[in-house]
Amino acid sequence: MRLPRFEYIEPINFEGALDLLYIHKDNAKVLAGGTDLLVRMKKGLLKPKIIISLKALKELSYIKKDDSYIKIGARTSIADIIASDLIKKEACALFEACEKIGAVTIQHYRGTIGGNILQDNRCIHYNQSAFHRSGRQPCHKDGGKICYARDASDRCNSTCQSDGATALMALGANITLVRKGTERIIDLDNFYTTDGIMPFAMESNELLKEIVIPIQGGKSSYKRLAYRSAIDYPIVSAGVFLKSSDTSKNEIEDARIVVGAIARAPIFLAKASSFLKGKKFNDISAFKKAADISMDNASTFAVHNVGSTLEYRCAMVSEMVFQALKEAAIVTQE
């Protein structure tokens, strides 16, 4: 498959990249690892005039501890995150999610964490070849007015299948977006817009600089379900975070349950999360109940557009959340 034509620019520093984005805005796309962008370009879903490569921006690849935060540069490769002991210890959900991205030994060296959380939403009807799409009316995401995933839907229902996003949202991460002259910090809950066509609250002249994970002393876990164990997107995923209270180690003080690959954005399930507060770590029935609440709440957003049947995916939300909670609880008690 040939790539469409574009102009390739390789800025030598971060400011240079921001200047280019400031000038070209919508005409330009940022290339980090290319494992998502180039595939979409090959399929004719994107035709940027200019590609801004981050190849020379080594300063955006780092993992460091800063007081009670872990800071990860946007261009850090997935392989570096898996190899980091700090991530494994303090943000286990992210480690587990990164291990599942793409294929262990191949895409990890090129794929980046920034690229993973900024990967576009997917839909079985949209992510097809130009030839396939030419045989029918364009859908909402393709610039048309039809949704093939849900009849008579007035909006795009594409699904966010990023592994990293679900895990990071469970960990309560923030991201830093930079544009020429200014910088802003936004938490992931607000960053994902739940709009299928433009899934991120991000301007075209902005660049993702770093991901900041607060170290809260709790334990996290990530579970996902996919057809294959490698090179596949999840059809359901769950990231959870559990923190014990200071007074009693066996009591859950704070919980965050996030379900991914089911809706237009990873969804934080407030009701299920608050249900767990005050419960005991060895209370399996409470986990089961929280998982069932998660399933009920998440099912309302589910759309049949990433393979497998909708009923199966919804049923598996409960299972994924339960497994993730159980694992996080076991790790906490060790």
Binding site: T35, L38, I106, Q107, Y109, R110
Partner: peptide, 8 residues
Amino acid sequence: PVRSCLTL
């Protein structure tokens, strides 16, 4: 190891 089809 990397994919040469996804590398410019």
